[in-house]
Simulated scan of single mutants.
Amino acid sequence: MATALLHGDIDAAFGRVHPPLPARLAHRRVRLEPVDAVLSKDHPLAAEPALQPDQLRDSTLWAPGALDRLDFLHQFADRFGIQNTATSVNLGVAHFLAQVAGEPRSFSLVPADVPLPEVPGLRSVPLVNPTPLYAWSLLWCTGNGHPKLNGFAATCAEEAG
């Protein structure tokens, strides 16, 4: 995404900002999105109405790629003492969630507001106390002359509150 912005292939993008940001890029946080834990219906905590993140300490965090390349999941594991992790090849969300559903001691994190595909044996449980928030930002190149970019950024900021 940063490369496409810097090359002028796109005018703006939504994503997670990882420092250091290239000098020509600017960003504005536009959403803090809560995440839920998704786990197998056979997971020992699957029947809980909500979970505190540290309750997952003895479970395996399943990631759709190398954890060192997935900043949010990596930080979650570090912050809440998740020692066991597993990774897979990202072949799409349905495939990924089916893998999680098939492992009774594993879990992953998904945006709370996104409808999940129908995956048998999967349960989504809200995380509370604290509720982890995924930060989405609008990114653009400074000095971008697109006539609608300023209005778009203002609308995003207004919607974000």
Rank of each mutant, 00 (worst) to 15 (best):
L138D: 02
L39R: 14
A112R: 13
L67C: 06
A77S: 07
D113S: 10
A77P: 09
P104T: 11
P104N: 02
S106T: 02
F107I: 02
L133E: 03
V110Y: 13
D78L: 14
T60M: 05
L109Q: 01
I82S: 04
L51P: 00
P104Y: 06
L51M: 00
P111M: 11
L109S: 02
W62Q: 14
L56H: 03
A50R: 10
R105Y: 10
D36P: 04
L139N: 01
P64E: 06
P130F: 00
T87V: 07
A94H: 04
G92L: 04
G81R: 04
N129Y: 10
H43C: 03
S40H: 14
A98H: 11
V114K: 12
A94M: 05
N84T: 13
E118V: 14
P117T: 00
L122D: 08
Q75L: 12
L45C: 06
S108T: 07
D36I: 08
W62A: 08
R123C: 02
L32M: 10
V119S: 09
S106L: 12
W140C: 07
A98N: 06
A50P: 02
Q55G: 02
L73I: 09
D42A: 14
E33D: 13
N129H: 13
L51T: 04
T60S: 06
T87I: 07
L138P: 09
G102C: 10
L133K: 01
H43Y: 07
G65M: 08
Q52A: 10
V100K: 05
L45R: 00
P49G: 15
L97G: 04
V128I: 13
L127A: 01
P115H: 08
R69G: 12
W136R: 11
L45D: 02
L138C: 13
D42G: 03
T60N: 03
N90M: 09
A66S: 15
F96S: 03
A63H: 04
L138F: 09
G92V: 06
R123F: 00
L97T: 13
P130Q: 03
T87M: 14
G92F: 02
R79M: 12
D78S: 10
H95G: 07
V128C: 15
R105D: 09
W62R: 15
P115R: 03
Y134H: 15
A63E: 03
S124F: 01
R79E: 11
G65H: 05
G92C: 09
N84V: 08
G81Q: 03
D58P: 09
